[in-house]
Design a protein around this nucleic acid. Structure first.
Lengths: 212, 212
DNA sequence: ATAAAAACAGAACGGGCGGTCTGTAAACTG
DNA sequence: CAGTTTACAGACCGCCCGTTCTGTTTTTAT
C-alpha cells in the first residue's frame, strides 16, 4: 500500500505542517543566538523568510510559538541519547559526552534552556508546557533505565543519577562562557563522566527487542 | 565621634551608594520574580520607590544596572559557603545542602542565573561582567580549596569537583519547576551530596588563621 | 462549478520600552 | 557666600514589540 487512497493528511495539512516546522526552526536559531527576550516575531520572520501573517496565523501568541518550538525540540532530543554514532548502547562515559556534544550543547539544547528559563517567570508559557515537560522527563528517564542501571541495581537510583547528569549538563551551559579555558571544561566533563562511571553502568542484559 | 574628621566618604557618596544599593535590591527582586526580559526600568522604579531620574543617573543603560547588580550578588554569594550556621567548616554533605538552600535557590541565586543566561546572548552585558565573573570563579574555588580537598589530595581535582557541584545546582534551578514532586528534588539533592561525599572531604588540617 | 474554509500576505495600531533631555534642590569647593 | 558640581525628579520621544484586522490566494467540500 504505497498509495494510501483514503489520504488522511490533506494537502493543506502538509503545507501547514511544513510552514510550522519552518517557523519553529527559525525560532530555535533565534532563541539560541539572541536569547528569549530578543527573539521577536520580526526576527523569526526574517530568518524563516515567511510573511508576518503566516506566523500569526499558525501561532496566535508568542508563548504559543515558543511552546510549539519546545515540543519539537523535546521530540528531537528524546531519541539520540541511546543510539549515538554506534548502533549499540553507549558506554556510560560516552553517553555523558555524547549527551553534552550532541544534545545539550547544540543549537536546540541551548534554545531549550532559554525556554526553560523563560518558563520560570512566564506563567502562560509554563502552563502550555508543564504537562509536555513532565511527560518528556518521565519517558526520558524510562529510556535511560532501559539500557543503564545503577551499580546497586535500584531503578529509582538509576533515574536519580541520570537526572543529576542532565542538570549538571544544563548548568554547564550557563557556565560555559565563563570557564577559564576550553581545556578546563573538557576536564570537568571528563571528571564528571568518570564519577558517573562508578555509579552507573550499562545494563548487563540488553533489551532483546531492538527496534530498527 | 559622630563627626569623622578626615572623612573619606562624603555625604554625597553615602547617599549615592545607598541609592544604588536600593535600586540593585529592587532589580534582584524583579529578576527573580519577572525574569530578565520583564525586568524593566519602570518595574524597578516602582519596586524601589525611587524616581526614574535616580535610576538613569546612576546607571546609564540597562546592562550597566544589571552588571552592577550582578557584582553585588557575587560579593554576597562569596562568603556564606564556608561559614554556614555553624562557625566551623561544614561537612561536605551539609556544604552541598547549604549551598542550595541559602545561595543558589535564593532570590539572589535565581537572579544571578537570569543574568548568566542573559550574558550568553547579550554581548554588551557579557563584556561588562566577564572579568568580574572570572575573578569570582577563581576566588570561590580558592575559598573551597582552603577547607576541602579531593580524596586523592589533588588541588585541581578539588576545584573540578566543586565546579561540578555548582553547575549541578544551577542546572537544578532550571529544572525545579518541572520536577515531579518536591520529594524527588530532595532525593536528587541527597543522592548528589552522597556522591560528592565519596570524592570530597573536609581538609584534615583546617586553616590556622580564621578571619573574624 | 460554486461556496465555504483554510492558508497566507501585509498594513495598521496602541502600548511600553530604553534612552534623552530639561529643571531643581542638595552638597561640595574656594 | 558665590559658584560649580552632583543627585535627583519627571516629562518626553522615537522605536519596536505583540497583536489585530482586512484583503487575496489556495485548497476543500458539495
Amino acid at each position: 500500500m504505497t498509495e494510501t487512497p483514503t489520504n488522511k493528511v490533506s494537502l493543506q495539512d502538509k503545507r501547514s505542517q511544513a510552514m510550522r516546522a519552518k517557523i519553529c526552526h527559525a525560532a530555535i536559531e533565534c532563541l539560541d543566538r539572541l536569547g528569549y527576550a530578543e527573539t521577536t516575531f520580526a526576527k523569526i520572520q526574517a530568518k524563516a523568510n515567511v510573511s508576518r501573517g503566516a506566523i500569526t496565523h499558525h501561532f496566535p501568541t508568542k508563548q504559543a510559538l515558543v511552546a510549539a518550538t519546545a515540543m519539537q525540540l523535546l521530540s528531537n532530543a528524546q531519541g539520540p541519547v541511546e543510539r549515538g554514532d554506534t548502533l549499540g548502547v553507549l558506554p556510560v562515559y560516552d553517553l555523558i559526552m555524547t549527551s553534552w556534544n550532541r544534545i545539550v550543547n547544540s543549537s536546540g539544547g541551548r534554545a531549550l534552556v532559554e525556554i526553560l528559563v523563560a518558563c520560570r517567570t512566564d506563567a502562560e508559557l509554563y502552563q502550555l508546557l508543564e504537562d509536555s515537560l513532565l511527560d518528556w522527563d518521565q519517558s526520558n528517564l524510562a529510556l535511560i533505565a532501559q539500557s543503564y542501571t545503577s551499580t546497586d541495581g535500584d531503578r529509582e537510583d538509576t533515574e536519580l543519577l541520570w537526572s543529576i547528569a542532565r542538570n549538571f549538563l544544563r548548568g554547564l551551559l550557563l557556565h560555559e562562557k565563563f570557564v577559564s579555558s576550553p581545556e578546563y571544561l573538557t576536564r570537568m566533563m571528563d571528571r564528571f563522566a568518570r564519577m558517573m562511571e562508578t555509579q552507573l553502568s550499562v545494563r548487563p542484559t540488553p533489551d532483546l527487542e531492538i527496534d530498527q
